[in-house]
Simulated assay, not measured.
Amino acid sequence: MPNYLLAYHGGGEPESEAAQAAVMLAWNEWLDATGEAMLDLGSPVGATMSVGSDGSVGPAPADPISGYSIIEADDMAAALEIARGCPVLADGGTVEVSELVDMDFDDEDDDDEDDEDD
C-alpha cells in the first residue's frame, strides 16, 4: 500500500487556552479516526526559509508548510478522504496530499561488503 505525505498549509494559532484545548481535541479525534493509516504523526513547522537553485536564501513561499504527517492508504482517493477530516481545514488551512515514491538506492559501501562475502 502506498504512503502519502500530508503537507499542512495555513491554519491559525488558537487565541485562548479554551480554543487551544478545542483544537487539540479535534486533532486527537481525527488521529483516532485515521487508525493504523497514520504512520508518522509528523510535526508542526516553525520558521521557514527558502534556498534557491543558485544557493540564495530568501523568505518562504507565499503559502509555506505549517506541518506534516505521513499516512498509508490504498490509493490517492483514500488518502484524500483521510485528508478531508484534517482539523487544519476547519481553521481555513489546506492539506496538500502527495504520494511518496519508493526509491531503491544502491549503497556502494553495501555492494563492497556483499562482494567480500562472496
Rank of each mutant, 00 (worst) to 15 (best):
N3P: 08
N3Q: 02
N3T: 04
L5D: 09
L6W: 01
A7L: 06
A7H: 02
Y8N: 00
Y8R: 01
Y8P: 00
H9K: 12
G10Q: 09
G11R: 01
E13D: 13
P14M: 12
E17D: 14
E17H: 13
A18I: 13
A19Y: 08
A19N: 05
Q20K: 14
A21W: 03
A21Y: 11
A22V: 04
M24H: 12
M24I: 11
M24Q: 14
L25D: 15
L25S: 13
A26G: 07
A26S: 10
W27R: 05
N28D: 13
W30L: 07
W30R: 00
D32P: 07
A33R: 13
A33S: 14
A33K: 14
T34F: 06
G35L: 00
G35H: 00
M38G: 01
M38V: 04
L39I: 02
D40C: 05
L41C: 15
P44D: 08
G46A: 07
A47Y: 13
A47F: 11
T48R: 12
M49H: 11
S50T: 14
V51C: 10
G52L: 13
G52K: 10
G52V: 08
S56I: 05
V57A: 07
G58D: 03
P59L: 12
A62N: 12
D63S: 15
P64R: 05
P64M: 12
P64E: 06
I65K: 02
I65N: 01
I65W: 06
S66L: 09
G67I: 01
G67F: 02
Y68M: 04
S69G: 10
I71C: 01
A73L: 03
D74N: 08
D74E: 11
M76H: 11
M76S: 10
A77Q: 14
L80H: 15
E81Y: 11
I82M: 00
A83T: 06
R84W: 09
G85I: 07
L89N: 00
A90Y: 07
G92V: 09
G92F: 13
V95K: 00
E96Y: 12
V97D: 01
V97A: 02
S98W: 05
E99D: 04
E99C: 02
E99P: 06
V101S: 00
D102K: 07
D104R: 03
D104H: 04
